[in-house]
Amino acid sequence: MANLRAGLIGLGMMGRHHARVLRSLDGVDLVAVADPGGDPHGVSGDLPVLSSIEDVIAAGVDYCMVAVPTAFHEQVGLALAEAGVHALVEKPLAADTAAATRLAEAFESRGLVGAVGHIERYNPALQNLRSRLEAGELGDIYQVVTRRQGPFPARIADVGVVKDLATHDIDLTAWVTQQPFTSVAARTALKSGREHEDLVAVVGQLADGTVTSHLVNWLSPMKERVTIVTGEKGAFVADTLTADLTFHANGTIPTTWGSLAEFRGVSEGDVVRYAIAKPEPLRTEHETFRDAVLGHDADVVTMRQGLRTVAVAEAVLDSAATGRTVEID
């Protein structure tokens, strides 16, 4: 069987990593790359740098990785759908729910594989966490807390921290718990002189009543990527920078020191850090999408799921703008 012919549009900070992985992917040949701004990181190799998505389509690609700014996702995605080309689009799926809906419907109506690059789903720590939650190792889930903080990335210009970074936390929270968001209440801040927000704090609720909390900003000198799931039997802590997963169990030994027992509530139990395989999430994401294009059973982030994440992100911004809790249909 001939290799799949892959294209890539967008050769910026993320595009360079996609190019590296696509070149090393079994069963795939990277045959066309495009970026109207050229090739700043020198990743095109012996391929000419094309100027438009139409040029990539003309090269006869089976599927395309879309790594252009969010504002162009709809235009590029609809062109690929019209041409019958499968597409993996960087997150968020689109700039708003209307555009995201049009993209999802365009790919679904043509029977094409359309997916969104919510890469945290492929982080080994979160994949292991989801499996453990599904197996009931935590019992009832009470709360999900995420912290995603770090310095401002120069690559972002067209959206704020909610649609860029917080969409990771929205998607991963709904995915690991297998529960959709039903409401959010948020506050944002603009501290760096840009037109978009650079800090957000969100309190949410999932369909099963689980309470969530998300702190996301581009204002911290340290980089933090942490997900904490607290439940009936203890708490899981996933660090997606190191792909480590740790379990803090509720204790079974009574605390006899009276004042300490009063203060702590549940007692401390064993702490376990799991030894798990740690493949590169970006490679896993590309392998999964390749398999989906080949017709295999593959757990891609569908455009319909990506649309849901955009809708929750818009609800977060609406809440911040109005100062009220927003219910999510």
Rank of each mutant, 00 (worst) to 15 (best):
G251Q: 00
G251D: 02
G251H: 13
G251V: 00
G251Y: 07
G251N: 15
T252C: 11
T252Q: 12
T252V: 08
I253K: 15
I253N: 06
I253Y: 14
I253M: 05
P254D: 14
P254Q: 02
P254N: 00
T255S: 15
T255R: 03
T256E: 09
T256Q: 08
T256V: 07
T256A: 12
T256S: 02
T256Y: 13
W257H: 10
W257I: 12
W257L: 14
W257Y: 11
G258R: 11
G258F: 13
G258C: 02
G258L: 13
G258M: 01
G258V: 10
S259L: 12
S259A: 11
S259H: 06
L260C: 04
L260F: 07
L260A: 10
A261G: 03
A261I: 00
A261D: 08
A261V: 05
E262P: 03
E262I: 02
E262W: 09
E262Q: 15
E262M: 08
E262D: 05
F263V: 05
F263I: 06
R264A: 12
R264I: 06
R264V: 05
R264Q: 12
R264W: 04
R264N: 08
R264L: 07
G265H: 11
G265E: 00
G265T: 04
G265W: 07
G265V: 04
V266K: 11
V266C: 08
V266Y: 12
V266T: 15
V266R: 02
V266E: 11
S267K: 01
S267I: 00
E268M: 03
E268N: 14
E268A: 14
G269V: 04
G269F: 00
G269S: 09
G269A: 02
D270M: 01
D270P: 09
V271H: 00
V271I: 06
V271Q: 07
V271L: 07
V271N: 05
V272G: 05
V272S: 09
V272P: 09
R273Q: 12
R273N: 10
R273M: 14
R273F: 00
Y274D: 10
Y274P: 14
Y274V: 06
Y274M: 09
A275T: 13
I276E: 12
I276S: 05
A277M: 13
A277S: 15
K278Y: 05
K278D: 01
K278M: 01
K278V: 02
K278G: 01
P279T: 04
P279H: 13
P279G: 01
E280Y: 10
E280I: 06
P281T: 13
P281M: 05
P281E: 01
P281R: 02
L282G: 03
L282H: 02
